[in-house]
Simulated assay, not measured.
Amino acid sequence: MGASEFETVVQSFEENFRTRGEIGASVSIWWKGEEILSLGKGWCEKGEKRAWTKDTLVPVYSATKPLAAATLLLALEKRGLGVETMVREVWPAFPVEEASFGDLLSHQCGLSALDQAASIWEHDEVVAAIEAQVPAWRPGQGHGYHARTFGTLVDEPVRRLTGKVLGQLWWEEIAQPMGLEFWIGLPESEWARVAELYPGKASAGDFASGFYHEFNREGSLTRRTFGSPRGLRSVQEMNDPKAWAAGFPASGGVGTATALAKFYQAAIGAIESPLSESVRKALATRRVEGDDQVLIQPTAFSAGCQLDPVDADGTKERELYGPDAEAFGHPGAGGSHAFGDPELGLSFAYTMNQMELNVMPGRRSTTLVDALFGKL
Rank of each mutant, 00 (worst) to 15 (best):
T225Q: 00
E77I: 02
S302M: 02
D155K: 00
G185F: 07
G227N: 15
E319W: 01
A246P: 01
G33Y: 04
V294G: 06
S28F: 03
G144L: 07
N239A: 15
L57K: 02
V127M: 08
C109R: 09
S302W: 00
D240Q: 14
A300N: 06
Y350N: 03
K201S: 12
A117W: 02
R364T: 07
L74P: 05
G142F: 15
F207E: 12
R18H: 15
G24E: 06
H107W: 13
R193L: 07
A243W: 07
A243V: 08
S234I: 04
C44F: 02
A303W: 01
A99H: 09
C44N: 09
V60R: 00
P139C: 12
G231H: 03
S189T: 14
P298C: 07
L295I: 04
E277G: 10
L114M: 06
T53W: 06
S112L: 03
E356L: 08
P157I: 06
G322S: 10
A208H: 08
E173Y: 01
G110C: 12
N16G: 14
A371G: 15
E343S: 05
Y321M: 15
V194Q: 07
L104R: 05
C305P: 14
G269M: 03
E317A: 11
K49V: 11
K49T: 13
V359A: 03
A250V: 02
E190L: 13
G227T: 05
R286K: 13
N239T: 10
S112T: 09
A333L: 07
T367M: 15
E45P: 00
Q293E: 13
T71N: 13
E22T: 03
F101K: 10
M352N: 04
A25W: 13
E45F: 01
I130L: 15
G47C: 03
D370I: 03
A270G: 08
V154S: 11
H146G: 05
N16C: 10
A70I: 06
T315D: 14
H146S: 04
A300S: 15
I268F: 04
A3R: 08
G185Y: 04
A204E: 14
E7P: 02
L346G: 11
P298F: 07
R230S: 14
E343W: 00
C44D: 02
E89I: 02
V154G: 10
D311M: 08
Q11A: 15
D240K: 08
G24P: 00
